[in-house]
Design a protein around this nucleic acid. Structure first.
Lengths: 245, 245
DNA sequence: ACGGGCCTTTGATTTTGATCAAGTCGCCGC
DNA sequence: GCGGCGACTTGATCAAAATCAAAGGCCCGT
């Protein structure tokens, strides 16, 4: 897609911005926003865009990574598995999240696209060099880590203490509030995860997830078509069912 | 306690180190290790030691914090509560962990001493200033955040996918490997948490925790006296029961 | 030593969600 | 249009953990 000046975002200084970066959302919420035009140019010269189809693994548990990436659009599942195959999704990442683990080579988890996803990949060496040159970049990565930590801890409360109904409602709420990186909350959306994925995210079985979704539909908390498309008449109601004060 | 030169650690340059810091473990695994003697002196002038008895709240969910702290010894529970009182412990912190949330005023969780605990408190303003002066400090805080994120995600797998027996064994394994900051793993230790706390950490009830501990004892995975003191004949066996490959 | 309170254990019963087992729906290729 | 396959739903039954209930044990002060 060719980007012309009129479409460029006005909230960041755009002169001398590499063409590929000019329209990229990752420069706003994402990590690239802290870089100077020079640094951005440097990074963009080494970065490559990739499209990933659903189910395709980006990085496997225990593998070594030689690159980081920004999510341009789509959804990525982060998961862990037990030796006997039990699986838990430990996080979802949306645009413009940064993926990859600074300061360590080996990944402790598997990252896999949940839907068609575009990412912008950077070689580890370039990011590591930029981190040492631009202190603002480490600060941004640090903030992203803290955000993920907060999300992980919120989800621990969901996993440990909520009922199946509350868990499913909590999941729907997360999706409603994250699926569209532009506006805050969507009252209608396609689920980026299959029932099996939702079960792995919530620590439930697919049957329980399905039953609870059916029950939420019968209680008019949500409306469903196609089993993937959900609309939420009242966000407040959903939050309440999810046990979020 | 008075510290004389002979007891000072040799692995860090000790000249001009403030007396209170000289014997402090937090300088090794902790965040102070990155500071120059000058910066350490600066920080130590504004820091205060506090002893906290079990059950005493250090910082409450939703309160604003004006200080950070290092744990000198003891154990701190980090927890979240739902509106109706259901509680989940989302993390345990041991010496020499850093407590407090950089870059945000409001705490999203409650921190409470689990046992008698000593902490070294720093005013927010001083740390924030040192972060801007010493890039190494932010790097260290970033690493601590990433460590906590890894731990949180590991625990999500435990909460979402393990059985009660595996959960209790996982908890005992965590304690065995963290209770003594000096040596790696203890094969005998006092539990820093009550049954109620363990239940809140594992997303179980106290009765289930008690029953599973009894069962692990009968299966000779652990030995118990006083209901607080535990010894572990075989760490490998415990790990296996905990579902850790 | 005695009593009271709290923490812990143990037992009986119930409930929630898992498991087992059929279906149904939608999509795609033929 | 038909058949088949994968994803989802629904139903029946089962099991794990929660809940309800009652002791025990331990510590502490009197």
């Amino acid at each position: 897609m060719q980007i012309v000046n009129e479409h460029r975002r006005k909230d960041i200084h755009n002169s001398d911005i590499p063409t590929v970066c000019a329209a990229c959302e990752a420069r706003h919420g994402g990590v690239c926003g802290t870089l100077t035009p020079d640094q951005l140019l440097d990074l963009s010269r080494h970065s490559t865009r990739r499209s990933i189809e659903p189910g395709r693994e980006v990085i496997g548990q225990g593998e070594t990574t030689e690159s980081y990436a920004n999510i341009i659009n789509g959804v990525v599942k982060l998961s862990k598995v037990l030796a006997d195959g039990r699986q838990q999704i430990v996080g979802l990442q949306f645009a413009p999240d940064f993926m990859g683990r600074p300061f360590t080579r080996e990944s402790a988890l598997t990252a896999e696209a949940a839907v068609d996803t575009d990412i912008c990949c950077f070689p580890r060496t370039v990011i590591d060099r930029l981190v040492s040159e631009a202190p603002g970049l480490e600060h941004r990565l640090h903030e992203q880590a803290l955000k993920e930590l907060d999300e992980a801890r919120d989800w621990m409360l969901t996993l440990g203490r909520k009922t199946a109904r509350e868990k499913v409602a909590s999941f729907l709420y997360i999706i409603a509030t994250h699926i569209d990186p532009e506006k805050g909350t969507a009252r209608e959306f396609d689920l980026p995860l299959s029932r099996a994925d939702i079960a792995d995210y919530l620590g439930l079985t697919i049957e329980t997830v399905s039953r609870q979704i059916t029950k939420l539909r019968k209680d008019n908390v949500i409306r469903i078509e196609n089993s993937r498309h959900v609309s939420v008449p009242s966000l407040d109601r959903l939050m309440h069912v999810a046990g979020i004060d």
